[in-house]
Each structure stands twice: as C-alpha cells, then as structure tokens.
Write a protein that binds this DNA or RNA. Structure first.
Lengths: 194, 194
DNA sequence: AAAAAACATTGAACTAGATTAAGAAATGAA
DNA sequence: TTCATTTCTTAATCTAGTTCAATGTTTTTT
C-alpha cells in the first residue's frame, strides 16, 4: 500500500533492520484527507508530523493585513509539519491545507516519542530532516532577496517541475512573493522567448 | 572569564549537574578573533560551532553576480556556524566573518561528538537550537516577502537594537535586501517623523 | 447543461525601490 | 595632522513590480 516510499525516504539517512521497519510502520497512521482541508491553523497546536505519500499541501502564513504568504508546498516524498509548534507543543502561527486529495503517513507527538524510545536511530533521521529544512529555507531566503521575479520562477520550476500543472497559479505567485498578475506576465514573456 | 553567559544560554534548554557543567566547559575552546577575520568561506568545510561571548559576526552568501546577501548577524549570546556544512562535513556555500574583535567559545566536530557521548542531554540542546534557527529563518522569509522595506527595518531594529551603532549601514541594507541608498532615505524619513 | 464561482489575462496608471553620480562625513593609516 | 579610504547622504532618472479594472477562461456547484 505504498509504505516503500516512506521507507526509502528514511533509508536515505539510516539503515533499518526488519524489526525496526516493523516498529516504525506499526506506529504510522495512514490517513486520507480530502482536498481543501485545513490540518492546522493559527493558534492551535500542531499534533502531527506527516509524510506525503500522495497529494499536495501548502503551508502558509497570514500577516496582519490578511495577506497570505506560502512558505512551502509539500508533495509526494516530502514531510510536512510545523516543527516548532509540534515539538514544543506551542500554538502555531501557520496554516497547513491540502490542495489535492492526499494520503499521509502520520506521526503524533506520542507515536514519535515511542519511535525515538524504541529506535533511537530515528533521532538522526529527524535531526537531518530538520537540517535539510533549514538549508532549504536559507536558500529560499537568499533567492528571495537577491533574484528578480523571473529568475525565482525559473528556480521554482526546477524545484517543483510538476506543480504548475497541479495548483492554481496564484498560489505559486504567493510562494514567490509576487502578484498573480505579474506572474502571468512573466509566463507570457517566457512563452514568447522560446 | 565569562562562561556564565554560555551556561545560562544552555540552561534555558536543560538543567545541568556540576559534573556536566565541568565536562562541557572543559571541551570548549576559548578563542579571540580580531575583526575582519574570515572564519569560513565558500568551498571549505565549517569546522566550528561557536557561541559568541563578545563581538559581532556576519554570515553571508555571494551570488553568481558577486552580490552579497547577509543571512545573519551573530552577537553576544548567539550561536554561529554553518550547521549543514558542519554536521555533514560538506563544503559550505557561506562566508562567516567577524565585524568586531570577538571572543568565541568553540566546539569542533570532535569535541561536539565527545560532548554528546558524555552528556546526551545536549542532543536536546542542539535540536532546540536548530529548531529556533529554523523558526527564525522562516519568520525572516515571511517578513522579507510580505513587508515593505521600512517595516523590515523597524523589525530589524527591534530584533537587533544595538546593531546600527555597531556595524556599517550597508551591511544592514544587505541584510534587509535593499540598497544602502534606500536605507539612508528610510532612516532620514523616520528621523523626520518623530 | 446552466449558472455561479474561482481563476487567469491584459493593459493603463502608478510607486517602491534600484541605479548612477557626486559631494560630505567619518574612520583609519602613516 | 594629513592623506586616503571607506561610509553616508542627496538628488535625478529609471525600472521591476503593484494596483485597479475589465474581460475571458476554467472549474465547481446545482
């Protein structure tokens, strides 16, 4: 039923015995979530760390003027959570919403704790995931500051080649920090020059 | 000699016995670094995780056009490192430079490993530092995308109230992702309206 | 299948911020 | 103390990207 994907993901960071694979997969909860479902909203505590087996989600923030900023899209083979909120059990500032019908493999604070207690190796997995996330966020910050909108869009296409066919364009604009109208113009311009 | 500062910092995350304090402080190397010293440059592997006891450093990136983007200022009571490079022992993409004569408490990959082996509690400390760093970087990304330059500068002043007196203004502009000229105008505008 | 809603495109007018260039102020070196 | 270098400011011009408004296109709902 598709647990290979998450196992392959984890095996990038550590090797697991059959026994450990068992413990891990028995702790996961498989959950199907219909599109447009809010899994987390501002003020509530994030109670999941989820691996996306199928589907697409967005993590976003709403600023004081009601303006949305998309921090991350999460598609197949990515993890999604508000780690700060999840691990400190503090109210989140973020929203997480499915953009497609999605299938998630979920850890809760309790099952994650059990996992770490029974297979301490997973400390390493989560630390590395956190590091990768930090690196990716730093890179995104650098791009955001130093590159013009068209370059950012081209970088986005490299990173998420399938997304333009999957999500509404104004979400991409929000991720890039530009207006939907301007993204439309960029696409138009790129289409002409090729 | 000022080890209280780093101990207070660590004690925010865990409580330590006298014995553990001893192990920790004996592994730290205290190092004085004159201003304008490059501690890390692109292509080399980051071999330190340092606590700033005194002084000020900048972590920055140089893009393909030679354009500098400052990712972080590190002042008293902050940690500085390229964690991705340090913990994977991979070549860095970043530069780290002292802006003032600084005093650092340094962990190397070896001493950090010894520390974790002898006082596993520190796993928690470093995980929490990583999480805080990720949260801070996410917040900065949100600000960078959604706020006009003047608001970003005001936020900057809240976060780093002492820095305008300590570092050249063009570094602040680089951190904010705006031109030094425009920052000068913003400051002028703010000075008038008050 | 029709109606409604959400989304995308286009163009005109506008603005936040960049760039260039020059002079003023501060800092540092000899 | 002086000369040189770096930093800061000011002003003019320019441009990437915004905003607004109208129209067209898809998607969703009934």
């Amino acid at each position: 039923m598709g647990l290979e994907s998450i196992l392959n993901n984890v095996k990038k960071y550590v090797t697991l015995t059959d026994e450990e694979v068992n413990i891990f997969t028995n702790l996961l909860v498989i959950q199907s979530v219909p599109k447009k479902t809010l899994l987390l909203q501002e003020g509530s505590v994030c109670d999941f760390e989820a691996f996306v087996n199928k589907g697409c989600l967005r993590t976003y923030y709403i600023d004081e003027n009601g303006f949305e900023v998309i921090l991350q899209f999460s598609i197949e083979d990515w993890w999604v959570s508000d780690i700060a909120s999840f691990s400190m059990q503090q109210p989140s500032q973020l929203y997480i919403e499915t953009l497609e019908n999605s299938e998630l493999f979920i850890l809760t604070p309790e099952t994650k704790e059990q996992l770490l207690a029974q297979v301490p190796k997973f400390e390493r997995v989560f630390r590395l995931l956190l590091q990768r996330n930090l690196s990716a966020t730093q890179n995104r910050l650098i791009q955001t500051i130093s590159k013009p909108a068209q370059d950012k869009y081209l970088e986005f296409l490299k990173k998420y080649p399938t997304l333009p066919q999957r999500v509404a364009q104004h979400y991409i604009a929000s991720y890039l920090g530009i207006s939907p109208e301007f993204l439309s113009k960029i696409r138009n311009r790129l289409a002409k020059n090729s």
